[in-house]
Amino acid sequence: MTENGTTTTGTLRVKTGLAEMLKGGVIMDVVNAEQAKLAEDAGAVAVMALERVPADIRAAGGVARMADPTIVEQVVKSVSIPVMAKCRIGHFVEAQILQSLGVDYIDESEVLTPADEEHHVNKWEYSVPFVCGCRNLGEALRRISEGAAMVRTKGEPGTGNVVEAVRHIRAVHDEIAWLTGLRPEQLFTAAKDLQAPYDLVKWIAENGKLPVVNFSAGGIATPADAALMMQLGCDGVFVGSGIFKSGDPAKRAKAIVEATTHFEDADILARVSRDLGEAMVGINISDIPDAERMQERGW
C-alpha cells in the first residue's frame, strides 16, 4: 500500500473493488492475443492469460507452470478489459513476475502444479489483487486470511463437467447458512472445525455472506451451466476450456455471456442455447484418478 498525499493505492477496498466490477460477468481462459480479442468481442469482463487451457494441461501431463511472460504481455497489449494470469500455489516469485508484467489480477491456481504443499502465497505483500480457489468455506476463509481479494469455487478444471462446481458452491453456501444459526459460544469450535480464523468466522455468522466476491469455475461448458451456477448464488463465472475447446468459440462465448446476465430468464436461455455447435467433450469425474484431480491441490 503506497500513500501519495490523500491518494492511496493497493488497499483492500481497491483490490476487492475490481472483483465487484466483474460481477455478473464471464472471465475467459485465453492462450494468445487472438483468443483474447475474441473473448473481449464476445463481452467477457476479463481474460485469464495462460499457456494452455486446463483440458490441454490435463492431456499433456508433466509440470504446469506460469505462462511465458511474452504470452501474458501480448494478451495485456491486445485487450482493454482486465487481464488475469495464473501462478502456481505457493510460488511467490511467479506472483512477483506477474505483478511486474502489469496483470490486473493473479490467480493462485490449482490448475498449475503446486510449488509448495504447505503454504500459499502471502497475498498481503502485493499491490495487485489475488483470486484463489476453494471447495468449502474453510478453504475460502484461509485464502481470504492470506489476503485473497476474490475467491472462486474450484470445480474440476478441464473436464467440461459441472458436477464438482455445483458440489463446491453448495458446500460454501451450506456452511455459511450453518454458521448463521450458531450461538456466539459455538463459533469458536466452528472456527476450529473449519480450520479458519475466528474473526472471519464471526463476520460470516453475523453477515451471512462471504466478505469478497465468489465466482464459479471448473467445468462450465454451456450457457445453461453458467446460469445454473448463477442461480445457485455465485457472483459470476470463469470458463476455461469450455469455450476454445468447442466447435464455435465466438458464438458459445457470446451465448455464455448472455446466459450469465439473464440467468433467471428461461426464454432467453433457450434462445442462446440453440445451434452452438459441438460442446467440448466432457470427462466423468470418476474416470479421473485421484492423483490427477486438480481440486485436491491447495491446503
Binding site: 498525499g5 490523500t6 491518494t7 493505492t9 481497491v14 473493488g17 475490481l18 482486465p82 490486473d104 495487485v128
Partner: peptide, 26 residues
C-alpha cells in the same frame, strides 16, 4: 492498470458534512 487503482478524499460540490471517499477502480 489495476495496480494504479486508488482511493482519495474528494470535496464534492453540493455534498455537505466533509469529504467523500472516492474509490477509483481502473
Amino acid at each position: 492498470r489495476q495496480v494504479d487503482s486508488f482511493e482519495a478524499d474528494l470535496d464534492v460540490s453540493g455534498v455537505d458534512d466533509g469529504t467523500f471517499r472516492g474509490v477509483f477502480i481502473r
